[in-house]
Design a protein around this nucleic acid. Structure first.
Lengths: 206, 206, 206, 206
DNA sequence: GATGAATGAGGGTTCATTCAT
DNA sequence: TATGAATGAACCCTCATTCAT
């Protein structure tokens, strides 16, 4: 019931410095919570508990709820965070010299990187939440990557975004679910990539 | 007050012996529980509750526990059931004339059929249970199918069981997770199958 | 729903032999259930389950319920059975030559014998049931024993039935609860018996 | 909607530090839970339910589990609490002028006080838990009391701790079990105490 | 704003009792 | 009549969420 002192100050932003401090704190907490949540979710999956996340983040559970009104909101935030980063990377690779290489590298990177993501998408899907809600558009950058690779003759022209995302999702899901090692991932993706290449294009063996 | 029996499956065993009559009830209930569990698990994933399964099956929770001492035991039973059916189908296809066709058809069938499986395997994995414990071997029949398809020149010789299972698992996971429709499944698997074929072999287009 | 055949016979007891058979069966079952219940109760205490009792007795649970409409009824039956036996024994000892010896022996016997009883009394008490309801009177025979011992000068005259039963109950409770061995029981009862004897009467030491 | 706080105990600790304020709530709740648990256990015995305890204490079940991770832990806490208080009282009486009086008074006090204890020890025993685990030693102080009383000639020298504890336990058990009133307790213990006194020592009558 | 104690619905599981066989 | 499968209330316990501090 104790009202923060600041609330009773004059309307002039006298305490700017102090308030900024608070902001910094809040932001640092938000980041800490997100990091902790990723770790805990990767380890415990869907059943991760808010308490554990809070403990790992070194904050009280109440602090999490201040930033994320709901467990699901926390999950969404993580997913969106990931998506944003992926979109950024796609944007970077869109400048690459070798469009085919860029495309396949991006695909591999996402899969290698997806250990955590699945659980989250899973969670969101299970809750009937649209993971994309409010998220930065990731399809756009990927579509650009695909188009460039197709123009460069590195990817079949009859492959659409839908199949591509399906393959990507499948690989991510399995990589996380079955804990693909680097070797298995490479060999498995090799097959998929071969399937994506135009007939007659480079292939390891036969 | 109860879900009509007819809604689930059609396993009405005909038994004659008097004592077996009692069992008939139990067997029908067992089947109903398994069916209901698949449905609920597909819908709610890991967090499906025994109560809900019982309600959908039209039985009391106690009835489930009579057949399956534990929630995990129920999950395992479903997985094993699936595995058994898959192994059976693989055995059938091993006799097919066209080894390549048999192989790819089997792959497609499993994926089309995998709506539920993922959640279960998921569940088991999360519980640290070995899904294969006591289950009929499914790798054997699949390996046989693969070997025949390779001998027939329908599948690349440098693809091993590990990659194959990884691809299969990935497709199943994604099919279930993202709710692939028939069309998307066909197009996506087409890419994968192309990747599995020897270089120079039939390909739809480019 | 099948009505027993006998019910529709003529009123003449035509099927006497057969009915007697049934009776014998039922009686044997009743005895078996009582025995099993004592064993299980002694081992598992209040939380003994009907199923376990049934299994040990070698009958179905339904059979128990035919004889005893309720778990509590079963408990009561056991207690009453015990009480009856104790009353019988008291009656026998009432004829003994040495009234003092008879009294103390009876006391000891009951205590030594009480391993099981406590749990039952406990159970009944917990359920708010009067253990004595419908039971054969045990106070009468004991009072007789006490009176004779007092007349014989072996027990103080100022000890009443109430204290006596309190002491008896206490010893039984503790014997069962703390698992008194023969030795400890003897030494403990020696003190109590000394307290019951008239001043100046025989005492082990000082 | 809730049981008035005042109904149980009067443990309202006064703490000054700000952080300790939070604890004050927790401590009061802890005390309330312990009190309520004693009441419910005394009434319902082993089968007391956590929910009922929570309701009587006027808290949610979760609050109990915050303090006591397990039902058994709660039981243990109560037992240990009792034991500690008894040990303290024994320590006090060890200073008393009249060693014999102190000894017999202590015995009486424990019995009068034992309404709840039995059920608890019962519960713990049933769960295979060692009631003494981590509990303050109560045997030491009692042994001291006994030794002094024997030296003072108030208690027979051939009575050992084992018999003494057996008698004490028996009296407590019965007092709780059969709901001894003050009068009955006095008369019953009179007999026991007489048995504990050296031959020839004061005795009420004969 | 941060904390974590409190809450209580809900989860898995057991078991006294009923009832179809 | 005996059997044991079925039932579902009740149990212990967890955890997302709220709220007093």
């Amino acid at each position: 019931m104790r009202v923060p002192l600041e609330r009773y100050g004059t309307l002039v932003p006298v305490v700017n410095a102090r308030r900024a401090d608070v902001r910094a704190d809040a932001q640092r907490n938000r980041a800490r919570v997100l990091d902790a949540a990723e770790v805990v979710l990767a380890r415990d999956g869907l059943s991760a508990s808010m308490r554990e996340i809070a403990e790992l983040a070194g904050v009280g559970v109440g602090t999490i709820y201040r930033q994320f009104p709901t467990k699901e909101a926390l999950y969404q935030a993580i997913v969106q965070d990931r998506m944003r980063r992926l979109a950024e990377r796609a944007g970077e690779l869109a400048q690459a010299a070798d469009a085919g290489e860029a495309f396949f590298e991006y695909f591999s990177t996402i899969v290698a990187d997806s250990t955590v993501k699945k659980v989250l998408v899973d969670a969101l899907a299970a809750s009937g939440i649209d993971a994309k809600a409010g998220a930065p558009d990731i399809k756009g950058p990927i579509a650009a990557l695909l188009a460039r690779a197709q123009e460069a003759g590195a990817v079949r022209r009859d492959v659409g975004m839908e199949e591509l995302l399906a393959l990507l999702s499948a690989a991510c899901l399995a990589a996380q679910h079955n804990n693909w090692g680097d070797d298995l991932r490479a060999r498995t993706l090799a097959v998929v990539f071969d399937g994506l290449r135009p007939a007659g294009k480079a292939r390891a063996s036969g």
